[in-house]
Design a protein around this nucleic acid. Structure first.
Length: 593
DNA sequence: TGACCGACTTAGCAGTGTCTTC
DNA sequence: GAAGACACTGCTAAGTCGGTCA
């Protein structure tokens, strides 16, 4: 069915003529009767889409008279355009990225483009520029906002809510749906992750003339701000975006899209997990095949088999090729280089140990030692033979050929499905191992977090250690010590009463029972604090949220909550419950992924 | 066939809001 | 009521992957 639409679906974005575009896939009527599966499959995303267009960042407000920019020690009044960009830099003075040479060079080059000819002649060296007053001004503004009286904060909140109500919702197929990001991105200095060659470049203001609006033909077309017009208005119901523009740093599109709680996003989410569940039925066959292919005489086949093994066993990302010099130097499985792999015939008392050390998505380091099968080890040795450190490990492999191969094994199967599959299977298995029905609620939640953490570690979801970690951990330890002392004290008191009772005889007094209860309560409190400390320590560098939102089939968690009487609020907070609304009536307590 | 493009998902961080503790 | 801790949200960068085009 999908093939029928190939011709209709893809047309180069910038080649579409302005204003008269209409690509309403006519299968909508069929999708009416059909279930989610068919709707997702035939690519029709909506039949009615109406919205107000994006909310634009307010115009630049010039600096007040008392705030100056200095060049070479002298105050300089900048043109509005140059001043606006200077303020973007001034705001970032305290950030680490602003101290980097690449950032400064890129900023200065782009800033000079915004200057008048006179300014350009005068301002020739960044190190002679003084943004300190500008920086102070914005820091004071932030502080003033933070310490605003309650009523003023309330007023701001109401204004934001009004904006949300006006621009933050759309009508999609008769339903009022929340929009995810209804504001255009404000101008700023680009902050890439890791060593990004474009950091510091000026990300320019988005104007209505940059924006393409997507809505249904018969809807109320959003009005551009006064005196402006849209780049284009189109009606394409095979895509999910409401508005789009091209950003000037990487020349890629930015989209206004629906909130994850929307029905359409829910359908896509459900579909993703259904594909992963289908993999369960064929995964053993696929594993058997790639293991057999380790012995293939064809180099390409062996590389594919080893790469797939890594993707399956280590949950590596696919690793598309990237344009050199355009982004930070990061890799995934298919783009691994020889320098990222070390082979140890014997290490840590194990044989055939492979050490992977590379920067992955978002420049997060992946560093792992893993024992592999002898054939994998030998193949890797062979792939690395006569290669330089900078050469590709899998030089006969591309992500396209890998995915093409996977498609031949199961419809809809791509490399990333393995991540979803292995993450969800790990969660389900860990929950089974770690949960005991007789445990307290705290212990059950701790077990869930541990299962969640096992997945986050598998997927290498890391976070920076929170700045306040050491301090708050110390405080927690202090609390534990205090509680321990209280427990000891209560134990001593109770022992005394017990001794009295033995001497005097008779039944337990009210005071005795009270002390006994108190001791029990204190011991419970101490156990809770210990659990909290353990959880905190184990979590300090692991980001649990990413796996929970993107890789773990919510039906597993919902079923677990139902089975063990855990309130769902303990696992998902409000927005997460809204996001996974689709899963609530699709998972009873016996749901199996 | 490979380069490129468009549309989508996945990702970590920082700012804000809310709860807890003193 | 203030301060600090933590939970939550919004933001936007950075991936994946299916498609076209030369």
């Amino acid at each position: 069915m999908r093939l029928l639409w190939l011709g209709v679906l893809s047309r180069r974005f910038q080649h579409v003529p302005l204003r008269d575009t209409c690509r309403q896939a006519s299968r909508g009527a069929k999708a009416n009767k059909a279930g989610w599966e068919e709707k997702v499959e035939n690519s029709v995303k909506w039949r009615q889409l109406e919205h107000k267009g994006p909310y634009f960042t307010p115009a630049y407000e010039p600096l007040p008279d008392g705030v100056h920019f200095f060049y070479d020690g002298k105050p300089v009044k900048l043109s509005v355009a140059a001043e606006e960009v200077a303020t973007l830099y001034g705001k970032m003075l305290h950030l680490e990225c602003a101290t980097k040479e690449v950032f400064q060079r890129n900023f200065f080059r782009d800033w000079r483009k915004e200057m008048t000819a006179e300014e350009r002649k005068l301002i020739t060296h960044l190190d002679k520029c003084d943004f300190v007053e500008i920086h102070k001004h914005f820091m004071e503004k932030t502080e003033a906002r933070r310490t605003l009286p309650r009523e003023k904060k309330q007023k701001l909140k109401e204004e934001a809510e009004k904006l949300q109500q006006e621009f933050g919702y759309c009508i999609l197929d008769g339903h009022r749906e929340k929009i995810g990001n209804f504001k255009t991105e404000p101008p700023g200095l680009f902050r890439g992750r890791g060593d990004h060659p474009k950091m510091g470049m000026l990300k320019r203001r988005v104007m209505p003339e940059d924006v393409v609006i997507n809505c249904s033909r018969d809807s109320k077309i959003p009005k551009p701000p006064a005196g402006h017009q849209w780049k284009e208005v189109r009606s394409d119901n095979t895509v999910m975006w409401l508005a789009a523009w091209m950003e000037n740093i990487q020349n890629t599109f930015k989209y206004i899209i629906l909130n994850p709680s929307s029905k359409l996003k829910g359908e896509m989410d459900w579909h993703k997990y259904e594909v992963a569940r289908r993999l369960r039925g064929v995964v053993n066959k696929i594993r058997a095949q790639y293991q057999a292919d380790w012995k293939s005489p064809e180099m390409k086949k062996r590389q594919l088999a080893v790469a797939l093994y890594f993707i399956d066993k280590l949950a590596l990302r696919t690793g598309n090729e990237k344009e050199e010099g355009e982004t930070a130097d990061t890799v995934g499985c298919c783009s691994l280089r020889v320098e990222h792999v070390r082979l140890h015939g014997k290490a840590d008392g194990q044989e055939h140990v492979v050490e992977l050390d590379f920067l992955g998505k978002d420049s997060i380091r992946y560093n792992n030692r893993v024992t592999v099968e002898k054939l994998v080890f030998q193949n890797l040795q062979h792939f690395m033979e006569d290669k330089d450190p900078g050469d590709n490990l899998f030089d006969a492999l591309t992500t396209a050929s890998l995915n093409k191969h996977l498609q031949s094994l199961m419809e809809g199967l791509t490399a990333r499905v393995f991540r979803t599959y292995n993450a969800s299977v790990t969660l389900q298995e860990q929950l089974r191992v770690l949960t005991r029905a007789e445990d307290s609620l705290t212990s059950k939640v701790l077990a869930y977090n541990r299962a969640n953490r096992a997945v986050a570690i598998l997927c290498n979801h890391q976070r920076a250690i929170p700045k306040t970690f050491e301090k708050s951990m110390q405080k927690l330890q202090q609390k534990i010590e205090t509680k321990k002392a209280q427990v000891t004290e209560a134990q001593v008191e109770l022992e005394k009463l017990k001794a009295d009772l033995r001497t005097r005889g008779g039944s337990k007094s009210k005071s005795f029972l009270r002390k006994q209860q108190r001791l029990l309560k204190l011991e419970e409190q101490l156990a809770r604090l210990h659990k909290k400390a353990t959880d905190k320590e184990e979590n300090k560098q692991v980001a649990l949220g990413t796996a929970k939102l993107n890789y773990l089939d919510p039906r597993i968690s919902i079923a677990w909550c139902k089975r063990f009487g855990v309130p769902i609020e303990k696992i998902y907070h409000k927005t997460q419950r809204e996001r996974f609304a689709w899963a609530f009536n699709r998972a009873d307590k016996d749901f199996e992924f």
